[in-house]
Design a binder for these strands. Structure first.
Lengths: 340, 340
DNA sequence: CTGAAAGCGCTTACAG
DNA sequence: CTGAAAGCGCTTACAG
């Protein structure tokens, strides 16, 4: 079998306890002993068994990453790799590994989370989403287990530690940009309203309209449930309205490009006939035609901060719940034009 | 503290061994006893401690995912989420979780892998890349630890279990497509030559040229080291050659679009002036302008199969090494045109 | 069909 | 400064 602490102890003529203390770099051990033990460890190729260590230390040095609903869908969301990149940076700097849920349904994800927590598979959890009436978040909230959320919790925000953008403000700004360009018929294509981010953006949209004295029209609002793809028929419907929009707000750049394509098939050109503002500012959006006006929500930072806050919580269990608002910027490019 | 097997045993008036057997659904336990024990487990909210179970069972039900060089760069590669989606599907179906490396350098990744293996943190490993002279792959090859590779190993392929596309053939086909359209000056923008996939595609490129009787020109070959972005200066250089290319093969769709943008700045239009064939067939490529001719390499499948093969290896340690070639298709779209 | 005991590989008071 | 012992929460031969 593998080399254990006993093998090292025997060969170095010390007790297993001493070897353990050398690994922990306990100051009460002589430098001399340490040196000798370390040489033997090297020689034998000793590596600590994580399971044994985790069991007694009650610590795993692992962060659990929980995706919304279905792993499969999350992987297709351009948000995911970028937020993970941010999470990974902090995790790595603090010697944490990453454990991913793979559940295909909300129910499965919930069960995975419960077993991660109760089974002590991870030291803390990052929820990559915030939605209403989510049993996973309810469970965590009642568990006193360290976790952070990417997104504003739907209720009692000051009882949670989370990171978020100011989504209401972002959306308001995006719409105001269109209003300033003379648009009044502005459609809104958002994600599922179960997600708080979608709710907030819709709120910002409404606020901007109100401020501009524009009547809110239900028939210009769309919500994409679940899928990462937009529905072509909805686009056709939308543009066949008696008063079709001259501008559209979408919730992701790739969705925006898909939309642009469908508009094109209807002989509608962006930005000539319709202006578009989007969210996420995908790396490729500045290089595409038309270059997309998009809100950069600092996805990397969201992940980075969520991970930092979580590690703080793990290390200081009684730390107060807090939140961080990550900055956003509206990047103006060629997908918007003054409405004549 | 948490509820343990002992608590359940006491309350159910059985021994811890029996509780353990109920968890394992051991057929030698009466249905009656099982029922009673399960009720108590439910009542007490018992969940098995993974660390303890893993320690004694010497099994973690976790797959380690190893990315090339740097986690940060891999996260930015569109290949990553899609291959992970495939891996996740099989893993989930077989009740495995996913553990991700976060290393920032090749050295760090190597150390993470060694400690994952020796520390028994995972049951098997999927290498998401194959490159030459890689200490990680060498280590795994000598360790008799279950692992699979996404990509053809650079040496002794039949001593490894891996999945791959037929990259030589794919590349050859892509180039032949351009040749058939009358192109002779065909540039090649590939990834770092350390990666076997890049080598194979270059080989396919050369084979296609040779077959068509076209002279190979070193000055039309570019390799992107590490980064996910193309270098604008290289594009300028390339197009300022005395005999600039009329067609370009790139290794990723998003790279292709970035390239197209830089060409545009030089007043070079795709496909009018230059045709482009790419790899990966990104979901968005059919919706963009120009729609990209791209080789669909079934990334999801690569992940799915790599994961399947790995789980087979974990369950049957003496299974023979094998490999799977995943199909690819050249998807013809609007980025190529006949050379006049 | 079930239990008592040993053990997985560590860590950590408790002694000395 | 170091060691012997107990214990983390499980599983699994070995008995009966």
């Amino acid at each position: 079998m593998s080399v254990t602490i006993k093998d090292v102890a025997k060969k170095a003529n010390v007790s297993p306890s001493t070897v353990s203390r050398v690994i922990a770099n306990n100051p009460r051990i002589t430098e001399e002993t340490k040196k000798r033990v370390r040489e033997v460890m090297e020689e034998l190729g000793y590596y600590p068994n994580f399971q044994a260590r985790n069991l007694v230390a009650n610590k795993t040095n692992t962060i659990g990453i929980v995706m919304a609903n279905s792993a499969a869908l999350s992987f297709q969301n351009p948000f995911f790799p970028e937020v993970l990149r941010g999470v990974s940076a902090t995790a790595h700097a603090n010697q944490y590994g990453l454990y991913l849920t793979t559940g295909a349904t909300e129910e499965e994800v919930y069960n995975e989370v419960v077993s991660m927590v109760q089974g002590k598979r991870v030291d803390g959890i990052i929820l990559l989403y915030s939605k209403e009436n989510d049993q996973t978040i309810d469970y965590l909230a009642n568990s006193s287990f360290p976790f952070t959320i990417v997104g504003r919790p739907s209720v009692n925000p000051n009882q949670f530690t989370y990171v978020d953008n100011n989504n209401i403000e972002n959306s308001k700004e995006a719409v105001q940009h269109l209003v300033e360009l003379g648009h009044e018929k502005i459609a809104f294509v958002g994600g599922s309203l179960d997600f708080v981010v979608s709710q907030d953006r819709l709120t910002g949209y409404k606020q901007a309209l109100k401020k501009a004295g524009i009547q809110y029209r239900e028939d210009l609002i769309f919500h994409q449930e679940m899928t990462a793809s937009i529905d072509q028929d909805s686009v056709i419907q939308l543009m066949n309205r008696s008063e079709p929009p001259t501008a559209i707000v979408t919730h992701d750049d790739l969705v925006a490009y898909e939309l642009i394509r469908y508009l094109e098939e209807l002989k509608i050109t962006v930005p000539k006939d319709v202006s578009i503002v989007s969210f996420n500012n995908h790396k490729i959006s500045e290089h595409l035609r038309p270059p997309l006006t998009s809100v950069d929500i600092s996805i990397y930072d969201l992940g980075f901060q969520a991970s930092s806050l979580l590690i703080d919580k793990i290390n200081q269990p009684n730390i107060q719940d807090t939140h961080k608002i990550v900055s956003s910027t509206l990047i103006k490019r060629g997908s918007c034009r003054r409405n004549n």
